[in-house]
Design a binder for these strands. Structure first.
Lengths: 231, 231
DNA sequence: GCACCCAGAATATGATCAAATTATGCGAAG
DNA sequence: CTTCGCATAATTTGATCATATTCTGGGTGC
């Protein structure tokens, strides 16, 4: 598919029109990582991406630099860049940080909630459940992320939200591996409780539910990855 | 070979020997921002940096991308990049996030403290006090940052520490402006209390002291910048 | 097993094109 | 006659690419 074709087909994704090449490459690569299209440990080469994404070398370089700065990719010392492989300590850290940040975002989001926000979250959650029933891993990851992102937007706290987004990038590839291994059925969430809390105007309940949601999800990652390494 | 060479070269200029150009440019630009050498709102041009830092265009470009990804610089919509200007909401967010993260790092750092760590912190704090007495703003900023960084290293939590470092970059320029306005005398800290808590093995006290330290410092920024805008 | 060499990939440069901001000049209104 | 507004030109800056250079890793011969 040519570049022009890609720009024309961008009716869905808003404002693909006049975006610098490096921005487009960044977003595409970011999406690949976030949705686990890249395997942890996989090498990310500049020339490989110029071929795969039909982009020039300079834009690809810049996209890689941005993503390494965000922790979505790691510099391997010797000019090599790879998708990060999480160890037990990394996961423990991620649990701690995500728990804190996500709870705070939930608190703010619930406090500032507008009419219709609960419905919007419920719609996303319904799509999520549908993906789970289908066993659609890709759909599960996408909708789950959309659910949390919707809460971030409600919180109207851009710095906090950007930190949370950055954390998603760090475990996105590993999450995909875990979901592929245990299936979508065995990853419970607390979204229903959060929505109920939101409707009841119970800010603390929303925060509690999202904190548990995060911890539970991350624990699954730790358990599965830990088991994979042991035997 | 790399280990010996690194040890040899790292006597003074911390491994400037075999570092990619873009890495060197990144660190220099990062230091400029962190120490407030750049004024909030100032435009950061790629060609201006190639001239100032005597570097090529590509390395400068990559350094700018990395720093924008970290929030140290901001995209101004039309392809312009500037040093961020903090508004009241940004500062409130930063207070909240820093308070949380810094407290957690202090807790971990205190829990894992080795013999000599307290002395090391005390030495940095002494240098900090000396800078305050001299009215040396640059020295104050450097030593204050070193104090916190030393605590981060003790915590042995790289992800958490990288988030904290990223936050420093966001308010570095504004902090410099504030210090230049109110002087170094009027920015109290809780370092002595943290050191005392560390010696006593009181983890909670260290966390409390650092949390107050952060909040107090950020409140000064908010107050001064708020006053500057009002009249 | 060790040293050397080569292929391939990353780094870095400068040129070229496009976009945006600033400077400029013309005309009309006061 | 001066001044303001607007359109256009000029300059500055960013984006991209093609290319030269340097470095890493692996294979080969001894």
């Amino acid at each position: 598919m040519s570049v022009k074709a890609a720009q024309k087909e961008s009716s869905e994704t808003t404002e693909f029109a006049r975006m610098p090449e490096h921005e487009a490459v960044y977003r595409r690569l970011r999406a690949l990582i976030l949705h686990g299209e890249l395997v942890p440990g996989q090498a990310v080469t500049i020339q490989g991406l110029t071929a795969d994404l039909q982009a020039g070398m300079t834009p690809v370089r810049e996209a890689i630099r941005r993503l390494t700065a965000e922790g979505a990719l790691v510099f391997q010392g010797n000019r090599r860049v790879t998708v990060p492989v999480l160890d037990a300590e990394n996961i423990d850290e991620l649990i701690l940080v995500r728990k804190t940040i996500e709870a705070e975002l939930a608190r703010r989001g619930a406090a500032r909630a507008k009419a219709g926000d609960a419905d919007r979250l419920e719609a996303i959650d319904a799509a999520l459940d549908a993906a789970i029933q289908r066993g659609d891993v890709r759909g599960y990851l996408t909708e789950n992320h959309r659910f949390h992102t919707a809460l971030y937007e409600m919180a109207a706290a851009p710095i906090l939200a950007s930190l949370a987004e950055g954390l998603w990038l760090r475990f996105g590839p590993s999450l995909r591996v875990v979901c592929g291994r245990v299936g979508t059925q065995n990853v419970p969430d607390r979204h229903k409780e959060a929505i109920a809390g939101l409707r009841a105007g119970d800010v603390a309940e929303v925060a509690r539910a999202m904190e548990e949601d995060v911890v539970q999800g991350m624990e699954v990652i730790r358990t599965v990855l830990g088991e994979a390494k042991a035997p």
